[in-house]
């Protein structure tokens, strides 16, 4: 059996990669994908700890997170499309209408 810590380290690596992608990239679509990746790495953590403690609650939590992620993708992509209609760009440096 594989120790739970291995999974935690892998999840930390994926999460850090996704966070770095959010900070470094300027394409809104790629930032979106990086956010999805971070959500998934947290799912991996929850499932690993669910096995560690022999408790099903973590898996239920992951199920709910998946549904929320699906809702987030639908709304987020609709916002991106609506923004592209107005500005002809998905560079987040140019999406600054609400910036102070």
């Amino acid at each position: 059996m594989i120790p739970t810590s291995y999974y935690l380290i892998l999840a930390a690596l994926i999460f850090a990669t996704g966070a770095t992608g959010v900070l470094v990239r300027r394409n809104a679509l790629i930032i979106f994908m990086c956010v999805e990746m971070m959500l998934n790495s947290v799912n991996l953590t929850l499932i690993a700890l669910s096995r560690q403690w022999g408790n099903l609650n973590g898996q239920i939590f992951v199920f709910v997170i998946m549904a929320v992620a699906a809702a987030e993708v639908a709304v987020g992509l609709a916002i991106l499309i609506a923004n592209t209609r107005h500005r002809r760009s998905i560079n987040i440096d140019e999406i600054n209408l609400l910036k102070w």
Binding site: I9, A12, A19, G54
Partner: peptide, 29 residues
């Protein structure tokens, strides 16, 4: 740099206490 700091922080907290192998998850899960 910020990503690297995040990775070090996360890795440190994950490695700080290595979890023991679970007893027998098959029964509950």
């Amino acid at each position: 740099g910020l990503g690297l700091i995040l990775l070090v922080g996360l890795g440190y907290s994950a490695l700080q206490k290595l979890l023991p192998l679970p007893a027998d998850p098959g029964a509950a899960l």
